[in-house]
Computed example of a mutant assay.
Amino acid sequence: MVVAHRLSQARACDRIAVLDAGTIVETGTHDALIAHGGIYAALWSAWSRAEL
Rank of each mutant, 00 (worst) to 15 (best):
A4K: 04
L43H: 08
T29G: 11
L43P: 03
M1Q: 12
W44H: 11
A12M: 09
R49N: 08
A50W: 15
D14Y: 00
A32I: 13
S48Y: 04
S48C: 07
V2R: 01
E51G: 03
V25T: 05
Q9K: 14
A50D: 09
A10D: 01
A41K: 09
S45L: 11
S45E: 12
L19V: 01
A4E: 06
C13V: 10
H36Y: 11
L7T: 02
R49W: 01
R49D: 03
A50H: 09
M1D: 05
I24S: 14
G22H: 07
A41M: 06
A50F: 14
S8F: 02
V3D: 03
D20W: 02
L33D: 04
A50M: 10
S45Q: 13
S48D: 12
L19T: 05
A41F: 08
D14F: 04
L33W: 00
L52Y: 14
I24K: 10
A42E: 09
V18A: 07
S8W: 02
I16M: 02
W47G: 12
L33P: 05
H30E: 07
V18C: 10
E51M: 11
V25M: 07
I16S: 06
M1W: 01
A41L: 03
H36W: 06
R11M: 12
Q9M: 15
A35E: 05
G28C: 01
E51Q: 14
H30G: 03
S45R: 15
G37N: 09
A35I: 06
A12T: 14
D20S: 07
A4D: 08
I24N: 04
M1R: 15
A42V: 00
G22N: 02
A46H: 07
Y40R: 00
L43S: 08
M1C: 10
H36S: 15
A17I: 08
V25G: 07
A46C: 05
L19G: 05
